[in-house]
C-alpha cells in the first residue's frame, strides 16, 4: 500500500479571482515585455511570479512614442513608451503560443482610444489561452483613451462594462491615481463587472533638461514609478480596499514595491497580490527576495497563508489581534 505523502502547502499560494497563483507577486505590464524578456537573466524564473501582465495591447499595431522614453528621477523614473505593441492579432497568434503557461499565469493588458477598441481587443483575448484580462483605463502616455477614460468614473465604468460583455475571463480594472476620489472610480468599475482592481498606475509627471530648456521625455510628460510613489500608492490601495474589501473584490497593490517590507505594507493595507515593476530594473532577481521575505514574515507572525494577511491593518488604539502561530502555540 502506498504511503500517503504529507501534502506540503505553499503559504504564498492564493486564489485570485479564480486563478491559482503560486506567489502574490504580479509582474506589471510594461516592465516585462510579452512575458519572456526577463528569462534572459540567469536565475530569473517566471515561476517566481504568481502572474505576469503582458505589455499593453491595442487593436492595431502601435510604434509608440519617440525617444527619450525613460528618465531617472530621485528614487524613481518617468516613462512614456506610448503603448508600443504589435497589435492584438500578432500577440494572440504569434506570442501567446510561445509562452509556457505551466510556469505562471499570463494576464493581457488591454488598451485603446475608443470604447469599441477595448471591446474588440478583449474579444480577441477571450478566444485565447490568456488567463485574465487587465483593462488599462489609466495609461498616461497616449493622446486619446488611456487615462482620459480612467480619470472619469462614468467613462471607466463604460469601458469595463463593454469589456465585461465580451469575456468570461477574469477582468482587472487598472485604476489611475490621477483623479480626485479613487474610491468612486473603484466602486463604479466593480458595478460594471470588474473582478479585481489594480491600484495604481503611474502618476503623471515631467522632467526638464535645463541646459537645453527642453523636456527630457520625448512625449513631454510621462508616468512616474518607483519607490518615490510608494506612499501615494499605499494610501490609494487602502482607500480602494474600503470599497472593494467588503465586496470580496481583490486588489493588486502596486506602486514602488522594491522589497518584501514594501510588499507586506500593501498586503496589510488591503491588497491580495503585489505588483512589481520598476524594482526589476534595479534587481532582476528581486522576486525571490520578496517571496522569501513574505514567507518568513508569515511564519514569524503566525499566518498560515498570505491571504490571511490582506487588510489586517490595525488602526486606532486596539492592539493587533494575536495570531495562533509557532511563537504562541504552546500557550493554547
Amino acid at each position: 500500500m502506498p504511503v500517503a505523502k504529507e501534502q506540503k502547502t505553499n503559504p504564498l499560494a492564493l486564489d485570485f479571482c479564480g486563478l491559482s497563483l503560486d506567489s502574490p507577486i504580479v509582474l506589471l505590464s510594461g516592465c516585462v515585455g510579452f512575458g519572456e524578456e526577463y528569462t534572459r537573466v540567469e536565475g530569473f524564473s517566471n515561476r517566481d511570479a504568481g502572474a505576469i501582465v503582458l505589455k499593453g495591447t491595442t487593436r492595431e499595431p502601435r510604434l509608440g512614442n519617440p525617444p527619450h522614453r525613460v528618465s531617472e528621477t530621485p528614487m524613481g523614473m518617468l516613462n512614456a513608451i506610448g503603448l508600443q505593441n504589435p497589435g492584438v492579432d500578432r500577440v494572440v497568434d504569434e506570442i501567446l503560443p510561445t509562452l509556457d503557461f505551466a510556469e505562471t499565469r499570463f494576464i493581457a493588458n488591454v488598451c485603446g482610444s475608443r470604447i469599441e477598441d477595448y471591446a474588440a481587443v478583449t474579444r480577441r483575448f477571450d478566444n485565447s489561452a490568456i488567463d485574465a484580462i487587465e483593462i488599462n483605463i489609466s495609461c498616461p502616455n497616449i493622446k486619446e483613451g488611456g487615462v482620459s477614460f480612467g480619470n472619469y468614473p462614468d467613462m471607466s465604468a463604460k469601458v469595463v462594462a463593454a469589456c465585461r460583455a465580451e469575456t468570461t475571463k477574469p477582468i482587472i480594472a487598472k485604476l489611475s491615481p490621477n483623479q480626485t476620489d479613487i474610491r468612486e472610480n473603484a466602486r463604479r468599475c466593480i458595478e460594471a463587472g470588474a473582478d479585481a482592481l489594480a491600484v495604481i498606475n503611474t502618476i503623471t509627471g515631467m522632467a526638464i533638461d535645463v541646459e537645453r530648456r527642453r523636456p527630457v521625455i520625448g512625449n513631454i510628460q510621462g508616468g512616474l514609478s518607483g519607490p518615490a510613489i510608494k506612499p501615494i500608492a499605499l494610501l490609494k490601495v487602502r482607500q480602494v480596499y474600503e470599497v472593494a474589501g467588503p465586496l470580496g473584490i481583490p486588489i493588486i497593490g502596486q506602486g514602488g514595491i522594491a522589497t518584501a517590507r514594501d510588499a507586506l505594507e500593501f498586503l496589510i493595507a488591503g491588497a491580495s497580490t503585489v505588483g512589481v515593476g520598476t524594482a526589476l530594473f534595479y534587481d532582476p532577481l528581486v522576486c525571490r527576495t520578496i517571496n522569501e521575505g513574505i514567507g518568513s514574515y508569515l511564519v514569524r507572525h503566525g499566518f498560515g497563508s498570505v491571504a490571511e494577511l490582506t487588510g489586517t491593518l490595525v488602526t486606532g488604539t486596539a492592539p493587533a489581534t494575536p495570531r495562533p502561530g509557532p511563537a504562541n502555540e504552546s500557550c493554547a
Binding site: G30, C31, V32, G33, E37, Y38, R40, V41, K55, L63, G64, P66, P67, H68, R69, V70, S71, M77, N79, I81, Q84, T278, L280, F281, P284
Partner: peptide, 26 residues
C-alpha cells in the same frame, strides 16, 4: 546609445526608429 531602464527587452524604454523590410519599426 539611448536612455535605458531594464536593458533586457522588457520595458521598450530604449527603442529607436529603425527602417525594416516591413517598414518603420521601433
Amino acid at each position: 546609445e539611448e536612455y535605458m531602464a531594464c536593458a533586457v527587452g522588457g520595458c521598450a524604454g530604449c527603442a529607436v526608429l529603425v527602417q525594416t523590410d516591413e517598414g518603420p519599426a521601433m
